[in-house]
Design a protein around this nucleic acid. Structure first.
Lengths: 236, 236
DNA sequence: GTACCATTTAACCTTACATTAACAAAAAAA
DNA sequence: TTTTTTTGTTAATGTAAGGTTAAATGGTAC
């Protein structure tokens, strides 16, 4: 079977560069919609379904990060690649926190871009099976069923989880033993990152800790200023 | 697709040599902005994003090293190449302190310069978010995980590190057994080099020494007036 | 309406972090 | 040598982030 053409939303204000990039991607069998600025980009995004967004970071009126945030509010799973002239760490981090799948510093090698796109599509393709459709987790002595929203410890009665509790624990479980950045949870679950959503998340962390207390091998650690880490300690 | 043009900031006070070099680079498909002195160089640097800086060391008013330091305070990652009249040892050391990526002795072969630029660009281009981050280090009996910010000695409980402790130890580890100049840490981590940040760094060195005390093969030595050296002694 | 639930906001407290101060010790300079 | 500079170390300070509980909000079902 012929593979379905993947659809890319390209938001790039530089008309020359944008056109060249669009043509190049189309030559490589992608369907490309080119928006000339953030506003137009968001309109086009809402009107159709895409497999990937490529956003220029520096654009007048609405920069790439802001656009990404809006896109994420609509669809928390779509892969986003940022194009940036800056190699600055802050930017890299900021993008990462919005949930960037990759980063390209302009200027970049077109071959590199293609490979990255391919890799992301690949990853998302397998991730769909593995990650976004993964609803059952073993966390130490716990079983989390995030489709039915319950958490069971061994043979105890299952505990019902609220939607937010559930999503947060699931996100932590997906990152088990690794850093789960604050901003990731805030953008993915709360779809907004501000003081109050952040505090709200802390409240939920406290709730989850209470549930997890029955198994002393399982704990949620904080990495100050970064995020949380769900760790499962091996048997003592 | 045609490769995107790379942007170079060239700071060179000699008008003849500067113009010739600029033309030569432009002939080789680089976009070049030529500043005639350090002051102008810094202004131009702030106004735009560059992929590389080429700085003459000897310039009136503001020399290349001072300029490099200012540039580093704004962007700790941008590659810097120094042009020096001769291979003075002090100069090499000085450049090393501000994190020079390369050195060229005037007069130099223009082919060599091109090759070096290409190599640096190449290195930076393949440095994506993922692989540029080297997070795990073995330091004697220690394991440093600078993503999760902890330091573990053998099977002991991991010790949590603060962001500054973490970055400093990471920088020391990157220079293991070699000099890690004070100035480098100050410009890269503190992004400022003055009496107070310097004292602050000393405080952090003391903290790290305390952590590292459990392994007597590992120590942080001071090189008076120069910086620190993380040494790992072989088994006795 | 009110009873119920999830979620947010508030309040208060604790911990974490970076900086600065202070003084001692070591090294270099005079 | 004496003096000055640099470094070692501990403690004090101020601020920000996180932990936790309770109350307020807001939506939904009854």
């Amino acid at each position: 079977m012929e593979e379905q053409q993947k659809k890319i939303l390209l938001v790039e204000d530089d008309p020359n560069f944008g056109t060249v990039l669009k043509d190049y991607l189309m030559m490589n069998d992608y369907e490309v919609v080119h928006a000339k600025n953030g506003m137009e980009g968001f309109e086009k995004f809402k009107k159709d379904d895409y497999d990937l967004c490529i956003l220029d970071v520096m654009m007048p009126y609405k920069d790439g990060f802001t656009l990404a945030k809006e896109i994420r509010e609509k669809n928390s799973d779509i892969p986003i690649v940022f194009l940036t002239a800056k190699a600055m760490k802050e930017d890299v981090l900021k993008g990462y926190k919005v949930g960037a799948d990759d980063y390209l510093n302009k200027p970049f090698d077109s071959e590199v871009l293609l490979m990255k796109i391919k890799a992301i599509m690949q990853r998302k393709a397998t991730e769909t099976v593995a990650d976004s459709k993964q609803f059952e987790f073993k966390i130490g002595g716990f079983d989390l069923n995030s489709k039915l929203r319950f958490l069971k410890y061994k043979d105890n009665e299952p505990v019902k989880l609220s939607p937010k509790e559930n999503e947060l624990l699931r996100l932590l479980a997906l990152h088990e033993n690794d850093l789960m950045p604050r901003e990731l949870a805030l953008t993915k679950i709360w779809r907004d990152d501000n003081y109050f959503t952040s505090r709200s998340m802390d409240v939920y962390i406290a709730k989850l800790r209470k549930y997890l207390k029955v198994d002393d091998k399982v704990e949620i650690l904080n990495i100050h200023g970064e995020g949380f880490r769900l760790v499962v300690n091996p048997e003592q």
